[in-house]
């Protein structure tokens, strides 16, 4: 059963059409990386999947629930989708532990003790159990992003969305975040990742989707899309990304 199904998705901001008819699916347990030049609409696509952006037309179906249906309980549906942002978006006024427990308690109605237990499990998973009492401002960008991943995981999502999770990080901090994501993929999490990390896409992704100009240009296994692209635009983009300055 496919986890995510996107059908003929369009999104315009005013007169600017950012997504011009997107169709694709993510199967349960798959890791799909979306690559493409900036302005290609890949982040908008990701934000349309959990309806942070309201699509102009088309359908988004997650676990058989159509999120684009106006009658759907969007808050309930979003609980199944974990989202990790480029800018982390941790809650700066709350401790790391509270960041991970607050939605569990307020949304899933877990008890304080249970939420804390689940939070600790997930902070352990991202290697930050010793930071439970720190505030986000006291953490490095890489650590903040790992807390953000733990925060999303604590809600037991069936799908994780990553919006350029390493783009705001100093280069030496990227590795820690990617290795957490790699572990997550090995554990069988379904993931949709917008990224510029070609190495990660090549190693971890089951499928790579190349977007340009609001359409999907190429969609296939990484060994095809990255190593042997079929389209001129993909080749052009990859040569710029993989061999900058040449």
């Amino acid at each position: 059963m496919s986890t995510v199904e996107i059908r003929n998705l369009h999104k315009s901001f005013g007169k600017l059409e950012v997504l011009k008819g997107i169709d694709f699916t993510v199967e349960s347990g798959q890791v799909v990386c979306v690559i493409g030049p900036s302005g290609s609409g890949k982040s908008t696509l990701l934000r349309c999947v959990n309806l942070l952006e309201q699509p102009t037309s088309g359908q988004v179906v997650v676990d058989g629930v159509e999120l684009t249906d106006p009658d759907v309980d969007l808050d309930a549906a979003r609980r199944r989708l974990g989202m990790v942002f480029q800018q982390f978006n941790l809650f700066p006024h709350l401790t790391v532990l509270r960041n991970v427990t607050i939605a569990q308690e307020r949304v899933l109605r877990r008890s304080r003790a249970e939420a804390a237990r689940i939070a600790r499990e997930n902070l352990e998973r991202v290697g930050l159990i010793e930071k439970v009492d720190a505030y986000p401002g006291q953490l490095s960008g890489g650590q903040q992003q790992r807390v953000a991943i733990a925060r999303a995981l604590a809600m037991n999502p069936s799908l994780m969305l990553f919006d350029e999770p390493t783009s705001a990080l100093d280069p030496e901090l990227v590795g820690d975040v990617l290795s957490v994501m790699r572990q997550l993929a090995e554990d069988g999490m379904t993931m949709l990742v917008v990224t510029h990390e070609m190495g990660f896409a090549r190693e971890v992704a089951d499928r790579v989707v190349f977007m340009d100009g609001g359409v999907i240009v190429e969609d296939g296994p990484p060994e095809q899309v990255i190593a042997d692209p079929q389209h001129e635009r993909t080749r052009e983009f990859l040569s710029r990304v993989l061999h900058p300055g040449v």
């Binding site: 959990n50 942070l52 808050d75 309930a76 979003r78 609980r79 989708l81 974990g82 989202m83 942002f85 978006n89 941790l90 809650f91 939605a103 307020r106 949304v107 899933l108 953000a148 925060r151 999303a152 809600m155």
Partner: peptide, 9 residues
Amino acid sequence: EAARSLGMP
């Protein structure tokens, strides 16, 4: 956005 993506109304 982060709060809404965690399912908070």
